[in-house]
Computed example of a mutant assay.
Amino acid sequence: MSDAAEIPLLVQRDGPVVRAILNRPARRNAMSTALVEALDALLAGLREDRSARVLVLSGAGGHFCAGLDLNEVGAPAAPEEKLAQQLERNRRTGARFAAIAALPQVVIAQVEGSAFAGGLGLVCAADIALASAEARFAAPEVRRGLVAAQILPWLSHRMGRSEAARLVLQGAPVSAAEAAARGLVHEVLPDAAALAARVEAVIADLRQGAPGALAETKALMTALGGPVPEGYADAGAQAFARCAAGEAEEGIAAFKAKRPPAWAS
Rank of each mutant, 00 (worst) to 15 (best):
A4N: 08
A4E: 14
E6R: 14
I7A: 13
V11P: 06
Q12D: 15
Q12L: 15
Q12A: 15
G15M: 09
A20F: 03
A20W: 01
L22I: 11
N23K: 03
N23I: 10
R24G: 09
R24C: 08
A26P: 09
R27I: 10
M31A: 11
T33V: 12
T33S: 13
A34E: 07
L35Q: 00
V36Y: 08
E37M: 04
A38R: 04
L39V: 01
L42N: 07
R47Q: 15
E48R: 10
D49G: 01
R50L: 13
A52H: 05
R53S: 03
L55F: 11
L57Y: 09
L57R: 06
S58M: 11
S58R: 14
G59P: 03
A60Q: 08
G61S: 05
G61C: 08
H63Y: 02
A66C: 06
A66F: 12
G67A: 06
V73P: 01
V73L: 12
G74C: 09
P76W: 05
A77I: 04
A78R: 13
A78P: 12
K82H: 12
Q85C: 13
Q86F: 14
Q86C: 14
L87G: 14
L87P: 08
N90P: 11
N90R: 11
A99R: 03
I100Q: 13
A101Q: 12
A101E: 13
A102T: 00
L103Y: 08
L103H: 08
Q105T: 02
V107N: 02
V111S: 05
V111P: 00
S114T: 11
F116R: 11
A117L: 12
G118R: 15
G121Q: 05
G121M: 00
G121V: 00
L122F: 12
A125H: 06
A126F: 02
A126T: 05
A129L: 00
S132L: 04
A133R: 13
R136C: 01
A139E: 02
E141T: 02
E141Y: 07
R144H: 06
A149N: 02
I151G: 01
L152C: 07
L152E: 14
W154L: 03
W154N: 09
R158M: 13
G160I: 00
S162C: 00
E163P: 00
E163K: 10
A165F: 06
A165I: 03
R166S: 01
L167K: 02
G171M: 07
A172R: 14
P173E: 03
V174P: 10
A177H: 09
A179H: 02
A179Q: 07
A179M: 06
R182K: 10
G183E: 10
V185F: 07
H186D: 14
V188G: 04
A194W: 10
L195G: 07
A196L: 08
A204E: 04
A204Y: 12
D205Q: 13
D205K: 11
R207F: 11
G209R: 12
P211H: 00
G212N: 00
A213I: 09
A215R: 04
E216R: 06
A219M: 12
M221Y: 15
M221H: 13
T222A: 15
A223F: 08
L224S: 14
L224F: 15
G225N: 13
V228T: 05
E230C: 03
C243S: 15
A244D: 03
A245H: 02
A248N: 00
I252D: 03
A253C: 03
F255M: 01
A257H: 05
P260Q: 07
P261D: 02
P261T: 04
P261N: 01
P261S: 07
A262R: 08
S265C: 07
S265H: 09
